[in-house]
Simulated scan of single mutants.
Amino acid sequence: MRKSRVMVIVLTFLILSLIISGCDVDTREITVDSENKLIIHFIDVGQGDCTLIQFPNGETSLIDGGSRLYGDKVVNYLKDLGVDKVDYLIATHPHEDHIGGLPEVIRNFKIGKVYMPNRRANTRIFEELLLELDNHDLKINLAKAKDSIIDEEQLKFYILAPNRDDYDETNDFSIVTKTEYIDNTFIIAGDAEEDSEKDIVNNGLGLKADVLRIAHHGGRTSSSEEFLKKVNPKYAIISVGSDNTYGHPHKETLERLNGIGTDILRTDQLGDIIFVSDGNKLDYLEKSIKGDNIEIEYIGNKNTKVYHSKECNSLPKEENQIIFTSILDAEKNGYRPHEKCIKQGEIK
């Protein structure tokens, strides 16, 4: 009963959000009756990664949480969906753009099992994550290939990588997961690069997937030709920040993706991207609140309840910041505009 009620709320929220934001919605066969649906959210966290999986058995998994600046957005996103527990929290590898938002998640939700690779980092955010885990008496499960997280007759959730503990690059320690729900399959690839991809290809597990969340924001050192041909996804998701300084996604990666004929969906262009599966049929929604010619983020001050443009010279300290993706988002959370950097009448 609880699962049915929560899942009804989920799709109702998604559809209303899309209508309010003025987006065109692909509603083929998507109904509010969401019993037995798998819903995967690729949350737009700028130049970072964050994926929420709502399984048809009522459980949830959060894979990464974006950078520290997006911790509040991730928390609010989950709360708006009615999520109160993350059953499987996965930190793919200890880079800030993947784990930065997770301490805030741990502070706000019940957490079941935690999965991390056998790789540490000498950074403040990594130490903060370990401290929050310790404060909440959460044990770390060291992930390795072929570990099973969910193993039911029609639903599988398991680990494809890492396959070794002696990689040179931290990215290659990334936890790569695969979800199988009847006939629909998803791979979330962390930041795994070519060495890890070779091991994944050789580890004997099936790689064909309908949806592949591309590794390392579309960087050229990931998404090797051999790996892409094995996965052969219908959809390729790239989580990437607009006008990022890394030049992601790289031209070489896009050419390899175009070469296999996959549909490329990017968070910097579409915002949050949501897939809904009944196990046989797959639909996706673009829950973007970005206008055709507007890609704006606003930064709020938690202490003063004032929001600023991201170019403002009076931005608060990092620990006091909260990210909003629109003026409407800021104001509905009780924030008022900074009188110098936010112009009156600016588009909401």
Rank of each mutant, 00 (worst) to 15 (best):
I125T: 14
K139A: 13
E255T: 11
L228K: 12
G101S: 04
Y335L: 12
D49L: 11
I159M: 12
V10K: 08
G190T: 05
K302Q: 15
E225T: 12
A215D: 06
L102R: 12
I327A: 08
A236Y: 10
L160F: 11
S314G: 01
F13K: 08
I149K: 10
I200A: 09
G112P: 08
H217S: 02
L138M: 14
G190L: 10
R336Q: 13
V8S: 04
E29T: 02
V74I: 00
E286R: 00
H248G: 01
I9T: 07
S67D: 13
I63L: 10
I289D: 03
G300V: 15
Y115D: 04
A143G: 10
N303Q: 15
E128G: 13
D64E: 15
N184K: 14
I182M: 03
F275T: 11
P233C: 13
H93T: 01
E96R: 05
D151K: 03
G279P: 04
S61Y: 01
N118I: 06
E153C: 12
K79V: 07
E59R: 05
K281F: 01
R124H: 14
G112D: 07
I294A: 10
L254S: 09
E226S: 11
G219R: 14
A121R: 15
K332S: 02
P233H: 11
L315M: 11
N122K: 15
L38R: 05
I188V: 10
K230D: 09
I140V: 14
R2N: 10
Y307C: 09
E132L: 13
Y235L: 10
E346S: 12
K113E: 15
K332R: 02
K208I: 02
I296A: 15
D80S: 05
I264H: 09
K146Q: 05
K156P: 07
V114H: 01
F109D: 00
E152H: 11
G190E: 01
L11Q: 09
M116E: 04
E331D: 11
E35W: 13
G291I: 01
G190R: 09
N141Y: 12
L328V: 09
N184L: 07
N184G: 07
G100H: 07
K139Q: 08
G100P: 06
S242C: 08
G46A: 09
K302R: 15
E226P: 09
T179C: 11
E194A: 12
C50T: 05
A192P: 03
N163T: 03
I99Q: 03
V211T: 01
I296P: 06
S242K: 07
T245C: 12
E104V: 03
A91V: 08
E297A: 15
G271P: 01
K287F: 03
G334K: 07
E297K: 15
H216R: 05
D172A: 07
T51H: 01
P117W: 00
L212M: 08
I294G: 02
